[in-house]
């Protein structure tokens, strides 16, 4: 029992170290790919970002709507329903925007990345590139990683904006909150540092989610079972990592 725990611990430390080295290799190769093979990155921004837009916008709209409802019903107990705009803006920009976007991103784009890379490995496409003297890390992994990193902050921003729109529809158009108060209170209480916190979070989550997806796909056991396990692990590990890191960043801003 003790020995098993020890081996698991060693295994974890080894994997974590390998993940960091892998991250470094991605970073070192990134500038060349951006400068020389920008087209590959743009294609991946389309795959990870543009194709995730619909799910992000639909979810953002409803999350914003729920914030409008909850904010109104709770704040009205204190006659503070005019603050529902501020309430929604703080929730969305600082927390829900980056976190939910990262979770949705892991489910939509992360799984697609992990399974695509895993299947490329299982069908020898990565070995074939190696044999054609083409480094799969540079040709396949770096553009996909960068595509995710670039897309995430934009997706989180779009999520927050659509969410505010949803909150506005519910609070102002349906529940009758004064539109002037809705926007004015938001404007006077929100600071630029609140927005920065959201931007930093979304960027960090983008790095984490893309890194884990690419890593899991690249290290998948090249069988049907291995690829499906890698896909599942991508979502689970990204969700855990995002929530832990969210706590850390939030703590550092207080």
């Amino acid at each position: 029992m003790l020995r098993e725990t020890w081996y698991t611990l060693i295994d974890f430390v080894r994997t974590f170290g390998a993940l960091q080295l892998f991250f470094l290799r991605l970073l070192i190769n990134s500038p060349t790919i951006i400068l020389r093979r920008g087209g590959l990155v743009v294609k991946q921004v389309y795959n990870a970002g543009a194709l995730s837009l619909v799910i992000i916008m639909v979810c953002g709209l409803f999350v914003g709507g729920v914030l409008g409802l909850q904010g109104y019903s709770n704040l009205s107990k204190f006659n503070a329903e005019d603050s529902v705009g501020t309430f929604a803006a703080f929730s969305l920009l600082k927390e829900l925007g980056p976190v939910i976007t990262a979770l949705l991103f892991a489910g939509r784009a992360g799984t697609a990345l992990a399974s695509e890379i895993g299947l490329m490995k299982a069908t020898d496409q990565l070995s074939a590139m190696e044999m054609m003297a083409i480094n799969p890390l540079r040709r396949v992994l770096v553009p996909r990683f960068l595509g995710g990193v670039i897309s995430m902050p934009f997706l989180a921003a779009i999520f927050s904006v659509v969410g505010l729109f949803g909150a506005h529809i519910v609070a102002v158009n349906l529940l009758g909150v004064d539109p002037g108060a809705f926007w004015q209170q938001m404007q006077s209480t929100l600071e630029i540092s609140d927005i920065n916190e959201g931007i930093i979070k979304s960027f960090v989550f983008g790095v984490v989610a893309s890194l884990l997806a690419v890593w899991e796909g690249y290290n998948a056991i090249p069988t049907a079972e291995g690829v499906s396990r890698a896909t599942t692990r991508t979502v689970v590990i990204t969700a855990i990592a995002v929530l832990i890191i969210d706590f850390m960043i939030t703590a550092s801003f207080i």
């Binding site: 490329m120 069908t123 020898d124 496409q125 070995s127 074939a128 044999m131 003297a133």
Partner: peptide
Amino acid sequence: LYKLRRRFGMLFQNGALLT
């Protein structure tokens, strides 16, 4: 190694075409 590999052409069992 990559320079040397350019002298090789390899046909994989399943073709390994990029899908």
